[in-house]
């Protein structure tokens, strides 16, 4: 402003201070990029120099090449990459969304209402320790290998963390806040809605994140066992055709989509839990 050096209260030049901070952030980003690049380079070299057998490992360049080809080419597994991604997304999002929409409210209600807890808990406790994948044979008998069957398995893997974390979260509501609402004349349901649910939100988000991770990994397992499309199926075909490049492409795409989802979730979380930072 008016030509003078702006000073912060600390006796520091504000611009200088900002520049220092920015420089630091820039350095950190550069380090991450260097990390990734050297990993890829080492990988590329070890394949090109034939330190490892090409039968077992494809180089990054080959994978990249395959990625471009697979965008339009359906061989050898019968689907283009886009079709596989779409199939996987459809299954996982169906299962995951259902799990969140049912699991979170269920956990919250169980955590708040004692009677409801006693009613549901015994059933839940029996279902909870069953590994989601162990449902697969039964599900195939019931529903075949279509979307429903896999969505159901994904649902189970994501459902359990949603319930448990929401339950724990709302149980941790600070009692004095409940008393505040009581002295303001709020009904039990209003207290549940206005105090309990906001208090549980941190844990609810933790649950949803775990659920997303579970959903994605179970999806791949489900597709490897019973599918005719999808990223898991593509990986399986890669093994059958002895094509490590297809396997690695599948893994990479799965990783990238998973990362995309968790950053979307993080954005949603910082919107809802904005008060923590402000």
């Amino acid at each position: 402003m008016n030509g003078k050096v702006k000073e912060s209260g600390l006796g520091l030049d504000v611009e200088e201070f900002k520049r220092k901070k920015q420089k630091n952030a820039y350095m950190m980003t550069m380090l991450s990029v260097v990390g990734i690049l050297s990993f890829l380079l080492l990988w590329q070299i070890s394949v090109s120099m034939e330190w490892v057998n090409q039968k077992f490992l494809a180089s990054p360049m080959q994978v990249l090449n395959l990625f471009l080809v697979k965008l339009t080419d359906a061989s050898p597994d019968g689907n283009t990459l886009g079709m596989n991604v779409l199939a996987s997304l459809q299954v996982s999002l169906t299962g995951f969304t259902l799990a969140v929409c049912i699991g979170v409210p269920l956990g919250l209600l169980m955590g708040w209402y004692r009677g409801f807890d006693s009613l549901i808990r015994p059933i839940f406790e029996v279902v909870r320790p069953i590994p989601p994948v162990s449902w697969i044979p039964l599900i195939i008998v019931w529903l075949g290998i279509g979307l429903q069957a896999k969505a159901f398995i994904v649902f189970f893997s994501a459902f359990v963390p949603c319930v448990i974390n929401s339950y724990t979260g709302i149980r941790q509501t600070v009692p004095v806040l409940i008393n505040v609402a009581k002295t303001c004349g709020a009904s039990n349901f209003t207290i549940f809605w206005k105090i309990g649910i906001p208090s549980s939100m941190t844990m609810v988000f933790t649950g949803i994140k775990v659920a997303l991770g579970n959903a994605w990994s179970t999806l791949v397992a489900a597709e490897m066992l019973a599918a005719s499309a999808g990223l898991g199926y593509m990986i399986l075909m890669g093994r059958q055709f002895a094509r490590p490049d297809i396997i690695i492409l599948g893994i990479t795409v799965i990783g990238a989509i998973g990362m995309l989802f968790s950053s979307l979730l993080n954005i949603a979380e910082s919107k809802v839990l904005g008060w923590k930072k402000v």
Binding site: V174, V176, L177, N179, V180, A181, T183, C184, G185, A186, T190, K194, I195, P198, M201, L273, W275, K276
Partner: peptide
């Protein structure tokens, strides 16, 4: 009642905390 512990809702602003009673009403 004013409570012994600090009893503010961390997710609400000062205004929202203060107007909580009449809002309930």
């Amino acid at each position: 009642m004013v409570f012994q512990e600090l009893a503010l809702m961390p997710w609400k602003t000062v205004m929202a905390n203060t107007e909580f009673g009449p809002q309930m009403a």
